[in-house]
Simulated assay, not measured.
Amino acid sequence: MEHFTIATVAEQSPDFRRVLWTGTHTQLVIMTIPAGGEIGEEVHEGTDQILTFVSGTGEARIAGETKAVAQGDLVVVPAGTKHNFVNTGPNPLVLYTVYGPPEHADQAIHRTKEEADEAEESGRDNPPNS
């Protein structure tokens, strides 16, 4: 059995992205976006994404709409939808997200956005079974 006190685990991670668990159909990932940072505009063609915000403040930019996000908010990004999440506050924006199907390499740890971008571009961050 996998068990996480997810808000605590997410708050304790300094990494931009850390894959906690990968299944056949879904994947659990925690993220910490530094002040002034962002995930980066992207589209996951075949993957739905559900993000839950643990701490910090930011903006969800989805399909041309912008909404503020903060602790306790949950945002759904359907597959094929252009999106970005931006930290607008002075503290890290901490969240956990579920991808269905998995989007990243199993057990991937990317300490910074730059490291994450490089891993994606080089093909080292491909999900299992891709």
Rank of each mutant, 00 (worst) to 15 (best):
H3P: 01
H3V: 14
T5H: 13
T5K: 14
I6C: 13
V9P: 10
A10Q: 11
E11L: 15
Q12C: 10
S13F: 03
R17S: 13
L20M: 12
W21N: 06
W21Y: 06
W21V: 02
G23D: 06
T24R: 14
H25A: 14
H25C: 04
L28T: 14
V29D: 07
V29G: 08
T32V: 00
T32Q: 07
T32G: 03
I33M: 08
I33E: 04
I33A: 07
P34N: 06
P34W: 08
G36A: 12
E38L: 00
G40Y: 00
E42P: 00
V43Q: 03
V43M: 07
V43L: 09
V43G: 02
H44F: 10
H44M: 03
H44G: 06
E45D: 13
E45G: 06
E45I: 03
G46S: 09
D48T: 10
D48W: 03
D48H: 11
I50G: 01
I50W: 03
L51A: 12
L51P: 00
F53Q: 06
G56E: 04
T57L: 07
A60P: 03
A60E: 04
A60S: 14
I62M: 06
I62C: 08
A63M: 03
E65A: 14
T66L: 01
K67L: 05
A68N: 11
A70K: 13
Q71A: 15
Q71G: 15
L74Q: 13
L74D: 02
V76P: 00
V76I: 12
V77Q: 07
P78D: 09
P78Y: 03
A79D: 13
H83D: 01
H83P: 01
N84K: 04
F85H: 05
V86L: 10
N87C: 11
T88G: 07
G89K: 14
G89A: 13
P90Y: 00
P90F: 01
P92N: 10
L95Y: 10
Y96T: 06
T97M: 12
V98H: 06
V98Y: 08
Y99Q: 08
Y99E: 09
G100F: 02
P101H: 05
E103L: 11
H104N: 14
D106C: 05
Q107W: 05
A108E: 12
A108N: 11
I109R: 14
I109Q: 08
I109S: 06
T112K: 04
T112L: 04
T112G: 05
E114S: 10
A116W: 12
A116I: 00
A116V: 00
E120W: 08
E121A: 15
S122I: 05
R124W: 00
D125P: 02
D125R: 07
N126P: 00
N126V: 04
P127H: 08
P128T: 08
